[in-house]
Amino acid sequence: MSNSLGNITTIAKRELSAYFASPVAYVFIVIFLLLTGFFTFMVGGFFERNEANLVSFFLWHPWLYLFLVPAVGMRVWSEERRQGTIELLMTMPITPWQAIMGKFLASWAFLALALALTFPVVMTVKYLGNPDLGVVAGGYIGSFLLAGAYLAITCLTSALTRNQVIAFIISVVVCLFLILAGWPPVTNILTKALPDNRWIVELVSAFSVMTHFEDFQRGVVDSRHLLFFLSVIGFSLFSTSVVLRGLRS
C-alpha cells in the first residue's frame, strides 16, 4: 500500500510542478484573490453588513469556482491526451486509479493553496470584530469540498476530450446546473410551477451544491452534506476511470 501512496505522491508532485512551471498558477491565484476581495467587499457589502462574519465572502464561492475551477482542471487529462503522454503514463508500473488520484489531489491541493491565501479576509474580520471562528472554519471546509466537487467533474470532462476549451465549457455547464438546481430564483419558479409536488422541487435541489454548501457557511459540518460532496467527487473520479479505460480499447 505504501507503494501505491508513493505512486500517487509522485504523480501529484509532477502535476503540481506543472502548475508552477508556467505563470498560469500565479495568474490564477492573483485573479482568484482579486475576485474574492472584490465580491466580498464591493459587491457583497462586507462593511455595510456590520456583522463580524464571512457570509459575504463565502456567498460568492459557488459562482467564482464555476469558472475558476474548470480553468484549473481542464488540462488534467485533455493535455495528456493531446500530447500523447497518456501512453507513457498508462504504460508506467502504476494503476490508472493511482494516476487519477494523484492528478486530482494535486489540483485540489493547488485550489486549497489559493483558498488558504484568502486568510487576510479572516484577519480583517477578526480585527474588526469578534467572529465565531468555528463558523469560519466550517465555511472554509465547505468551500474546499465545493472546489473538490467541481474539480472532480472537470477531471471527468477533461478525460472526455483532447481539447481543453471543450473540457472547460462542458464543466462550466455541468457545474452551473449543480448551482441552479438549488438556487432560490430557480427553486421558486419550480415551486410555483409544481405547487402540489414539493418533493420534486426538493429532489432537484438535493442535487445542488447550493443546498449542501449553505449549512457549511453557517458553521454546520453535517455528515449528509459531507457525504454529498464526497460522493460527487467519488462518482466523477470513478467515471473518469471508466472513460480512460474506454479510451484504451
Partner: peptide
C-alpha cells in the same frame, strides 16, 4: 521500457 511512436514528453518540464 517503452518509447511510443511520437516520442511524447511532458513539455512543461
Amino acid at each position: 521500457g517503452y518509447l511510443p511512436e511520437s516520442a511524447p514528453c511532458y513539455s512543461d518540464m
